[in-house]
Computed example of a mutant assay.
Amino acid sequence: MHDLDQNSARPTERDRDLERDPDAGTGGETGAVERLVGLPVAEVERDLILATLRETGGNRTRAARLLGIAIRTLRNKLGSYAAEGHAIPEPAAGPPG
């Protein structure tokens, strides 16, 4: 199954790379994806979302864009994670105003 380019129904360049080299998306670490096998999808999704949010310094808009999901979806998921007791990265403080 392919990720589709947002503007067309054609597979993305990343899909073509993965077809040529299945380890291309793992940064060369064959075991990176294999370590996810057996984990619940919801847990993997949560960890990916929270890691992306940390990577963006808490910037929800940027994290949603990187994840390819709507900002509203991200906010809903973060609300659920917070209700479950997970720590949600806060946005970084902006420049002094």
Rank of each mutant, 00 (worst) to 15 (best):
T52P: 00
V33C: 08
R14A: 14
R72Y: 11
G85P: 00
P11E: 02
L48I: 14
G94S: 12
D17P: 00
R65E: 09
A70S: 15
T73C: 11
L48W: 13
A83R: 15
G25T: 05
R54N: 00
P95E: 14
E84P: 01
A51E: 13
L66S: 03
T26N: 02
P95S: 14
E45N: 14
A83H: 10
E84S: 11
A32N: 07
G38P: 00
D17Q: 13
G31M: 10
R14G: 10
P89T: 03
L66D: 02
P89M: 10
T12L: 07
R10C: 02
H2E: 12
G68S: 12
E34H: 05
D21K: 06
V33S: 07
T52S: 10
V37Q: 06
I88A: 05
G85Y: 13
D17R: 15
P11T: 01
R60H: 12
H86T: 01
R14D: 11
A63E: 01
T52G: 05
V37I: 12
L78Y: 04
L74N: 06
D47L: 10
H2N: 13
A9F: 04
K77M: 13
A83L: 14
P95C: 05
L78K: 09
L36C: 06
T56M: 09
E19T: 08
R62P: 00
G31A: 14
N76Y: 10
P95F: 10
T30E: 07
T26P: 00
E43H: 03
E19L: 13
H2A: 12
D3M: 10
E29C: 05
G28N: 02
A87F: 11
T12D: 05
I71G: 15
R20G: 01
R72L: 13
T30L: 03
L53Y: 04
H2S: 13
G57V: 11
G57H: 06
G38Q: 01
L18S: 03
G38V: 01
P22I: 06
D15S: 11
I49Q: 12
V37P: 01
D3V: 03
V44K: 14
S8H: 04
A24E: 00
D5V: 01
I49Y: 08
L66T: 00
M1I: 10
A93K: 06
D47F: 03
T12E: 05
G94E: 14
R10H: 03
P95W: 13
L66N: 07
A42V: 12
E90H: 15
E45Q: 14
G31L: 11
V44P: 02
V33Q: 04
D5P: 00
A87G: 08
D17E: 08
A92Q: 12
